[in-house]
Simulated scan of single mutants.
Amino acid sequence: MMTTLLSFLADLSNHLGLAWWVEIKTLSPICTYFFGPFLIRKEAEAALFGYVEDLEAEQAQNIVAHIQRCHPPHLTICNEMEYSC
């Protein structure tokens, strides 16, 4: 029940543009990844290391991460030089 409520709240905050997202850009491959939505920034901060670690394990290079409020149009955007929420 609590998980369902938290999921609903995360979806609602995302719809309103208030959710926190982890945005990770890599230069090899050239991709932007979005992970979320999170209700609070601390949740996103806690998850950040795991996402970076997974990308490093997949041989991604030049990884830059940001935590921000946004509503990404796609969760993964590749072969584009620049994109941000």
Rank of each mutant, 00 (worst) to 15 (best):
H15E: 09
I24Q: 01
L16E: 15
V52P: 11
D54K: 12
V64Q: 15
L39R: 14
T26H: 05
L27E: 11
N62Y: 11
I24D: 00
L6A: 04
L6P: 00
K25G: 13
N62R: 10
Y33P: 02
E23S: 10
A46R: 12
F35G: 00
S7W: 04
A60W: 09
E56H: 14
L55M: 15
K42G: 03
Y51A: 06
Y51L: 05
F34N: 02
S13D: 14
E58G: 01
T3Q: 09
F38W: 13
W21R: 01
T3S: 07
Y51W: 06
P29W: 05
Q61H: 13
S13A: 05
E23C: 12
E43M: 11
A60P: 03
V22D: 03
L55N: 03
L9Q: 13
F8S: 11
G50A: 09
F34A: 04
F34C: 04
L48Y: 04
E23L: 15
L6N: 13
C31I: 01
L48K: 13
V64H: 14
E43I: 03
S28H: 08
L16A: 06
Y33D: 04
Y51M: 10
P37M: 03
A10D: 01
V22M: 02
N14L: 03
G50P: 02
G36F: 08
N62L: 14
A57T: 04
G36A: 11
D54S: 07
T26D: 11
E23W: 03
T32C: 09
L39T: 01
S28A: 09
F35W: 06
F34L: 06
E43F: 10
A19G: 14
E58I: 02
A57F: 03
V64A: 15
L39C: 05
Q61E: 09
E23A: 12
M2Q: 15
H15L: 15
S13P: 00
M2N: 08
G36Q: 13
L39F: 04
A46V: 12
E45W: 10
L16H: 03
T32S: 11
G50L: 09
L6V: 02
A47Q: 07
M1F: 10
T26E: 03
E53N: 14
I30M: 13
I30T: 14
F8C: 07
P37Y: 06
L9A: 05
T3W: 06
I40F: 14
F35C: 04
V52G: 12
Y51C: 06
A60Q: 02
L6D: 07
I63M: 05
E53A: 10
T4V: 10
V64N: 08
F38T: 01
C31F: 01
Q61I: 05
V64F: 12
D11M: 15
L16C: 01
F49C: 09
L18N: 13
A10H: 03
W20G: 00
A46G: 08
F34S: 04
N14W: 03
L16D: 01
L16F: 08
A10N: 07
W20D: 00
H15W: 09
A65C: 06
I24F: 00
A10K: 07
K25L: 05
V52Y: 06
Y51I: 02
L5G: 05
A57W: 01
Y33F: 11
F38K: 02
L27F: 08
S7H: 14
E43A: 11
I24S: 01
Y33L: 12
D54G: 10
R41D: 03
L12C: 06
V22A: 02
L9Y: 05
S13Q: 08
R41K: 14
K25R: 15
A19D: 02
L9M: 09
A47M: 02
